[in-house]
Amino acid sequence: MNIKTITTAALLAGAAAIFTPSHATAQEYVLKVSAPIPPTEKDSVYAWMLAFEKGVEASSNGQIDVQLFPANQLGQLPAAVEGVSMGTIEVSFSIIGFFSSLDPRFQVLDAGGLFDSPEHAMQALQQPESRAMLAEFGKSAGVRPLVMVIDGQGVIVSKNPISTVADFKGLKVRTGGATPLLTKPLAAMGAAPIAMPLGEVVPGLQTGTIDAATNSMAVVNGFKMADVAKNVTYLPGNYTTVGAVVNTAFLERIGPDLAAIVLDEAQKAESVIFDHLAKTPMQEAAWEAAGGQVIRFNDAEQENYLSVTNPIVAEIISANLQMQSDFDVLKAAAAK
Results as ranks from 00 to 15, higher is better:
residue 145 P to L: 12
residue 145 P to Q: 11
residue 146 L to E: 06
residue 146 L to F: 14
residue 147 V to K: 07
residue 147 V to W: 07
residue 148 M to D: 12
residue 148 M to S: 15
residue 148 M to T: 08
residue 149 V to H: 01
residue 149 V to D: 09
residue 149 V to I: 14
residue 149 V to Q: 03
residue 150 I to R: 00
residue 150 I to A: 00
residue 150 I to Q: 00
residue 151 D to C: 02
residue 151 D to F: 07
residue 151 D to P: 03
residue 151 D to S: 09
residue 151 D to K: 01
residue 152 G to K: 04
residue 152 G to P: 05
residue 152 G to Q: 11
residue 152 G to D: 05
residue 152 G to F: 11
residue 153 Q to Y: 05
residue 153 Q to C: 08
residue 154 G to H: 01
residue 154 G to S: 08
residue 155 V to I: 15
residue 155 V to N: 08
residue 155 V to F: 10
residue 156 I to F: 11
residue 156 I to A: 02
residue 156 I to Q: 08
residue 157 V to K: 08
residue 158 S to Q: 03
residue 158 S to D: 15
residue 158 S to A: 14
residue 158 S to T: 09
residue 159 K to R: 13
residue 159 K to S: 14
residue 160 N to G: 02
residue 161 P to S: 13
residue 161 P to T: 10
residue 162 I to T: 05
residue 162 I to S: 11
residue 162 I to P: 12
residue 162 I to F: 11
residue 163 S to I: 15
residue 165 V to T: 09
residue 165 V to K: 00
residue 166 A to G: 02
residue 166 A to I: 00
residue 166 A to K: 05
residue 167 D to E: 07
residue 167 D to M: 12
residue 167 D to Q: 01
residue 167 D to V: 12
residue 168 F to S: 00
residue 168 F to C: 00
residue 169 K to Q: 04
residue 169 K to Y: 04
residue 169 K to H: 03
residue 169 K to L: 04
residue 169 K to G: 06
residue 170 G to C: 07
residue 170 G to M: 03
residue 171 L to Y: 04
residue 171 L to E: 05
residue 171 L to V: 10
residue 171 L to C: 05
residue 172 K to L: 02
residue 172 K to Y: 06
residue 173 V to C: 05
residue 173 V to G: 00
residue 173 V to A: 02
residue 174 R to D: 14
residue 174 R to A: 15
residue 174 R to W: 14
residue 174 R to I: 15
residue 175 T to C: 10
residue 175 T to D: 12
residue 175 T to M: 13
residue 176 G to H: 10
residue 176 G to Y: 07
